[in-house]
């Protein structure tokens, strides 16, 4: 842990954040004054293909860090690896990562969450056949009633249950889901499920929340409120790491951006810096070398559509290759 621990609440002020970020080096794997997550030498191979190969990455406490990259860059796999949902191929061969000073090399997904690093999923995992409030209450940690032997004796967990429900009501109110409290989660819209998943993750009072494409499949009206929620989490002192491939969103809210391409970390920096980084442009656009990603005019709907199609075509090709690799 670093000496320069910054009072998190100070980071609600944009100028303070800008000053802090300005002191970071804009190179892949740059060190940060107060990193909550430090990752070293994580490699994951499927068959012969290397999906992730990250040498070093640090995430600063109290900021919104975006992890971007074209589809198939290995962002989600990287997420799975550090949250314990997958094991690195390099496990035991130099792979090392730590959260808030605690080594996570051999930790299961559930212990990672208990350590304070909670994630959401790209394809929302709302528990459809349970009510919204049940979903929420599952998120709370250290419940006495989840112990098999205590569970049969209601007095041992009744008080705690009430406290948890009050907290859940609070969060549901904040995420505008309170009216849906007793509805089955399966009846919610895609965006509401994303909100529910985020609220459920917050039930455990995490130190850091990891969002896997929070904006995917959400209608534009809800996107804005989702972004607002993410920013307010940061303003309350939480660290946010999120995966996204839409650069537009990233620019809008992230304090720091890390870029992955073909499994490797290719750039780091503030949103504006990375978007003019040739390595990033290369990764995103392939042939379109001469364009500037930061140019808003370029990001017109039509143009984005075009780019997206190109990217998708490349992805399909890559996936097909991967599939073929997997077959053998």
């Amino acid at each position: 842990m670093s000496e320069h621990t910054i009072n998190p609440s100070g980071l609600a002020d944009p100028a303070a954040r800008a000053a802090l970020v300005g002191g970071f080096e804009a190179t892949p794997g740059a060190s940060k004054p107060d990193s909550i997550l430090v990752v070293d030498n994580i490699v994951r191979q499927f068959g012969g293909m290397t999906a992730v190969d990250v040498q070093h990455l640090e995430v600063q406490r109290g900021l919104i860090t975006a992890l971007i990259g074209p589809n198939g860059a290995g962002k989600t796999t990287f997420f799975n690896l550090i949250t314990g949902f997958d094991r690195p191929t390099s496990a035991g061969k130099g792979a090392h990562w730590a959260f808030d000073g605690r080594t996570l090399d051999k930790t299961s997904a559930s212990s990672v969450a208990r350590a304070g690093m909670v994630r959401t999923f790209q394809l929302t995992k709302a528990l459809s056949r349970m009510t919204v409030i049940e979903n929420m209450m599952l998120g709370a940690q250290d419940q006495a009633g989840e112990n098999l032997f205590k569970s049969m004796f209601r007095p041992t967990w009744r008080a705690q249950e009430r406290a948890i429900e009050a907290k859940a009501d609070d969060l549901l109110g904040r995420f505008k889901l309170y009216e849906k409290k007793y509805d089955y989660a399966g009846s919610l819209s895609g965006g509401q499920r994303k909100l529910l998943e985020m609220a459920r993750a917050l039930m455990s009072d995490p130190k850091m929340i990891m969002l896997d494409e929070p904006m995917a499949g959400v209608n534009p009206a809800l996107t804005q409120s989702l972004l607002g929620h993410i920013q307010s989490l940061r303003d309350e002192g939480m660290t946010v790491l999120f995966v996204e491939h839409d650069m537009h969103v990233v620019r809008h809210i992230s304090d720091w951006v890390a870029v992955m391409a073909e499994g490797r970390l290719v750039a780091e920096g503030s949103a504006d810096t990375v978007m003019s980084d040739p390595a990033v442009i290369d990764a995103y656009l392939g042939a379109h070398h001469d364009t500037d990603l930061g140019d808003d005019a370029l990001l017109s709907e039509e143009h984005m559509q075009e780019l997206a199609e190109e990217v998708a075509a490349e992805d399909a090709e890559r996936e097909a290759e991967e599939e073929a690799e997997g077959l053998r």
Binding site: A113, K125, L127, S128
Partner: peptide, 30 residues
């Protein structure tokens, strides 16, 4: 006994696991 078990938070966990194990894992449950 089953009535006591499933109305408790433990029973809620069971149903959560039935719905999606990975989600429950991501919430820090063993």
């Amino acid at each position: 006994i089953v009535y006591l078990l499933v109305r408790s938070p433990w029973g809620r966990l069971l149903r959560g696991i039935r719905e999606d194990e990975d989600a429950i894992r991501s919430l820090g449950k063993n």
